[in-house]
Simulated assay, not measured.
Amino acid sequence: MPISPLFTSEFSKDWEINFIQCYPNGQLKHTELCNILQLTAGLHAELGGLSFSDMQVFHQAWVLSRMRVEVSDLPKWRDVVTVKTWIVEMKDSRSVRALELYLGDRKLAGALTYWVVINTELRKPEALALPFEHFTFYPERLPTVKSFEKIDLNGALQFLKQKTIVLSDLDIVNHANNVKYLEWCLDGLNANVILKNKVQAFDLNFLRELHWNDEIEIQTSLEENPELMTVTKSGKTSFALKLEYSR
């Protein structure tokens, strides 16, 4: 698709929270928060001529590499929230995108995301084939207090559970969707950590793709705050999650 006449370098989108997206306490699930953020990013990319369909002409797609989310509160069922997004920087095969979620004038969450262009046939990173000079970048406008980070995997970990990747875990890029990794890990936590809204920030590192029928292990650290969780396949880490809890 060509660049839309409605394109601007800053974009916002309203979303109404439905009951399917919520925990039993009526608050938005952390996984659905990430979905809403990424859907907003996708709509902005589409307006700017960088959608999945546009990129597939060159056998390319954006994949998420790192993400940090900071949460002061979670919206509830029937709330109408606004997600705002802009690009911090973009160069060659990578892009840093900012996202913020508001309820009225109150900011509830911010996320800083790091994306990489891959060739979907070769499964390797490569420079973006489409033009992006029409985007204005905002390197000084950051949505989080801390930036995303490379998670230290040297701490002691213990086995939590095993899983086989199933069809419902896959997305249009034919690998396990990035939000699924977060879902698998959060399902292993004490429910009260989630239902009492203790998660105030989380970092995600996506290290290796996972595919249909892959056998994986989920492990967790012995420390509680911050808590580290990993997804491994054949002893190699595919995903790392670091959770920070309120005191």
Rank of each mutant, 00 (worst) to 15 (best):
E32F: 11
F19N: 12
L50Y: 07
K236S: 14
K13R: 13
P2N: 11
A176S: 07
T31Y: 02
E16C: 15
S65Y: 08
K233L: 08
S9D: 05
S12T: 13
Q60W: 00
V69I: 15
L170S: 05
V57T: 15
T113I: 08
V173H: 07
E244K: 14
Q200C: 12
S12N: 12
L160W: 00
D187Q: 09
A156E: 15
E140V: 10
Q38P: 02
A127K: 06
L99G: 12
L103F: 06
K84I: 02
A240D: 04
V116A: 12
H175K: 03
V173Y: 03
V63H: 05
A109M: 07
E32C: 14
Q56C: 07
I172E: 11
L33V: 09
Q162N: 11
R208M: 14
N197M: 10
I87M: 13
F137L: 15
M55E: 02
Q219D: 13
E16Q: 15
R247G: 04
R208Q: 14
L6I: 09
F137R: 14
T144L: 09
K29P: 04
L28I: 04
T85G: 00
G26R: 01
D14N: 09
L39K: 11
E224Y: 08
T120Q: 06
W77D: 01
W184F: 13
N174Q: 15
D92E: 11
T31M: 06
E227N: 06
I20N: 15
N225M: 05
I20P: 09
L99P: 02
E215P: 02
K150Y: 07
P75K: 00
L112A: 03
K198M: 10
N25D: 15
G48F: 05
K13G: 04
L228Y: 00
L6Q: 14
W212C: 13
K150L: 09
V231T: 04
Q27C: 13
F239W: 02
L167N: 10
Q27Y: 13
L39Y: 05
R141K: 13
S93P: 01
Q60I: 00
L210A: 10
L43F: 12
Y23E: 13
V63P: 04
L241H: 06
E217G: 06
M90Y: 01
A240E: 06
L103D: 10
V69S: 04
D14S: 10
Y138R: 05
F11T: 03
F137G: 08
I151M: 03
H59L: 11
L222W: 03
F148I: 03
S51E: 09
W184Y: 13
K198Y: 10
V69T: 14
I172M: 15
V179N: 03
C185E: 12
R94M: 12
Q21M: 15
W77S: 01
D79T: 04
V173G: 03
E223P: 06
N192W: 01
A191K: 15
L37Y: 08
K76Q: 13
S234P: 00
V231P: 00
K150W: 07
L210V: 04
Y138W: 03
A127P: 00
A127W: 00
E46M: 03
L228P: 01
W184R: 06
D169C: 04
I17S: 08
D92A: 08
N25Y: 01
W62D: 08
T40N: 06
S147M: 11
P75M: 00
M229S: 10
M229P: 01
F11E: 01
S12V: 05
E224P: 02
E209I: 02
H134V: 10
A156W: 07
K163H: 14
L207E: 12
D187S: 05
P143M: 09
